[in-house]
Write a protein that binds this DNA or RNA. Structure first.
Length: 105
DNA sequence: CCCCTGACTGTCG
DNA sequence: CCGACAGCCAGGG
């Protein structure tokens, strides 16, 4: 995969968040520009391989500085309702897109 | 503690 | 390509 990176960062942001939330935000924040991860991958790195759904929920409630746009659904699907914005942000980061879809693998 | 919702995922038709 | 189902998990009321 053309993803992955060094997630040696430290979850110093946010205070009253659960470990999972902090872990998710930490992983998301660890994504390098031009790189993208799926909710499932983020969830796995956060400690819950099947909590992709929860990741989306937390992300939607904590876009306080986390590059949520670097997190896409499986199959390179973009965020519903924000596809336009999402695409713009990804392109700005240098992410390769194809027909409104993020280039995976 | 119970119930509902959701930026999810994979399979089936 | 799109809709329906089932499985998964966390957060909020």
């Amino acid at each position: 995969m053309t993803k992955r990176a060094a997630r040696q960062n430290a979850p110093s942001s946010d205070a009253a968040l659960t470990d999972f939330a902090v872990a998710v935000l930490a992983v998301v924040a660890s994504i390098e520009a031009g790189d993208v991860m799926t909710y499932g991958e983020v969830a796995g790195e956060a400690g819950k391989p099947g909590a992709a759904r929860a990741v989306g929920g937390i992300l939607s409630r904590h876009t306080d500085g986390e590059p949520w746009w670097r997190v896409v659904a499986s199959n390179g699907r973009l965020v519903p309702g924000n596809e336009r914005e999402h695409t713009r942000l990804l392109k700005a980061d240098g992410v390769k897109l194809a027909n409104g879809r993020v280039v995976m693998r």
